[in-house]
Amino acid sequence: MEKLPTIKEIARRLNVSVSTVSRALSDHPRIGLGTKLKIKQLAEELGYEPNAQAIFFKQKKTFVIGVVIPFIREEFFSQAISGIESAAMEHQYTILFGQSYDDPEREKQVVEAMKKQRVDGLIISLSKGTNRYDHLEALRKYDIPVVYFDRIPNMADAHKVYCNLYKGTMEMIGWLFHKGYRRIAFINGPDKLQASKERMNGYMDGIAKQKLKVDMQLVEKTDLSKESTQAAMKKLLSLKNKPHAVISFNDYVHMDAVQYAQHHNIAVNKSMMFVSYANLPITSYTAFPPLASIEQYPYGQGEKAMELMMKILAEKQTEKKGEEEFYTEELSPTLVVYQQAIS
């Protein structure tokens, strides 16, 4: 097998020192232009490629960002990954990706693996059961910054990118009331998710804004599994005074809720309306997509999370002293209403 060319070989052929070749290839100002051109030309002819590991060691960087999400199979997170990767490539970074499968213990294992790989930073959307952040806070002593996106922790000292779901929920309630729906049911997500709390606050304040009391019989929750969502729908359909509309935690919960309603002879989006969060393209291929859905911009969240990470890493290079500053990027949601809901 032919050996790869090295800096030593370039130095030997041009009768210069190894340090001169190294400096010339990194455009050091102390190396003359003529010498630089000769060295770079020979390096290109030989097909020389820099030793990435040596560069990483010298710069104390790996140029890799760890990314942890619940599920890659969910379109929301795959879009977020695309946004993260696109922004990373613009800054000559790559990503190391892992899934928590919505399990806090698995999340800890993945984060530990990222730490051992010495990633320069970590971007994470928390699992549905994560309510302690010790495994993430521990990364500080390794000088690995963490940026949370979408599923974020309820704490001030954290870098975050998220969509304002409180505002989106308020807007959705207002739209439903405008369309004439008064008994609005809500299938919320797991209690430990900050996003569930934001949705719930938006729901309660949205109902109160219409000068009505919140009927807690209309509020159910799901652990995001199909079985749990169906159990929530069973309770709602057993009510003597059934809901006029159902808000689902996300588009996946929506699809499970609609399927259950269909099997129990509910005229979906006629006698009972269904709306949701996320506005995922996949729902357009279903028989009954949500009549309205809150766009949460997963690609944009991922992109902003990476841009924020680059900002944090750049500040680290300047060796900025003093108390650490934590950044928050908030995206405004958009209520997307489909044509069939306008009439």
Results as ranks from 00 to 15, higher is better:
Phe77Glu: 00
Gly83Met: 11
Gly32Arg: 08
Lys197Gln: 10
Lys58Ala: 11
Lys209Gln: 14
Lys192Glu: 12
Lys160Glu: 04
Gln117Ala: 13
Gly34Lys: 15
Pro5Leu: 09
Tyr252Val: 13
Ala231His: 08
Ile294Trp: 01
Met200Asn: 01
Tyr203Trp: 03
Ala341Val: 07
Gly174Ser: 14
Leu331Asp: 02
Val64Cys: 09
Lys221Cys: 13
Asn15Val: 02
Arg118Ile: 01
Val64Gln: 11
Glu90Asp: 15
Ala232Gln: 06
Ile294Val: 12
Tyr203Ser: 03
Phe186Arg: 01
His263Cys: 09
Tyr252Thr: 11
Glu75Ile: 03
Ser228Arg: 12
Met1Cys: 09
Thr286His: 12
Pro333Thr: 05
Met1Ile: 08
Gln92His: 13
Ile247His: 04
Leu126Cys: 01
Leu122Cys: 05
Lys240Ala: 10
Lys192Ala: 13
Ile342Trp: 09
Met233Ser: 08
Val219Gln: 06
Thr328His: 15
Leu25Asp: 01
Met204Gly: 01
Phe177Leu: 10
Lys179Met: 13
Arg73His: 08
Pro289Ala: 08
Asp256Gly: 04
Val337Pro: 04
Thr169Trp: 08
Lys58Gln: 12
Glu295Ser: 14
Leu122Tyr: 01
Val68Lys: 01
Asp157Trp: 05
Ile266Ser: 08
Lys221Phe: 12
Tyr93Cys: 07
Phe326Ser: 12
Glu105Ile: 14
Ser100Asp: 03
Met114His: 06
His244Met: 13
Val161Ala: 07
Met233Asp: 03
Leu331Ser: 07
Ile282Thr: 10
Arg183Ser: 07
Thr229Phe: 06
Ile184Asp: 00
Gly121Trp: 00
Pro190Arg: 08
Pro190Ile: 06
Gln340Lys: 15
Tyr133Ser: 02
Gly189Gln: 08
Gly174Ala: 14
Val268Met: 08
Met309Asp: 04
Met155Gln: 15
Lys167Thr: 11
Asn164Thr: 06
Ala195Phe: 04
Ile81Glu: 02
Ser86Thr: 15
Asn51Met: 04
Met306Leu: 10
Tyr148Ser: 02
Lys240Met: 02
Tyr166Ala: 10
Ala113Asn: 14
Tyr166Ser: 10
Asp223Thr: 09
Ala156Asp: 15
Ser17Lys: 00
Pro333Val: 06
Pro29Gln: 00
Tyr299Asp: 05
Ser238Arg: 06
Ala113Leu: 13
Asn265Val: 07
Glu85Val: 10
Lys116Thr: 11
Asn241Leu: 09
Pro153Val: 07
Arg23Ala: 05
Ala11Arg: 08
Pro333His: 04
Val68Phe: 02
Arg12Ala: 11
Phe63Gln: 11
Tyr181Leu: 14
Leu37Phe: 07
Glu319Gln: 13
Ile266Thr: 10
Leu165Arg: 14
Tyr48His: 02
Val275Ile: 11
Gly322Asn: 03
Lys321Asp: 07
Lys304Thr: 06
Pro290Ile: 07
Glu319Val: 01
Glu220Cys: 14
Ile65Cys: 02
Tyr93Met: 06
Ala80Pro: 04
Met170Val: 14
Pro153His: 08
Phe326Ile: 11
Leu14Ile: 05
Ala245Asn: 03
Thr283Glu: 07
Arg140Val: 02
Ser284Trp: 04
Pro333Ala: 05
Val18Arg: 14
Lys58Met: 05
Ile187Lys: 06
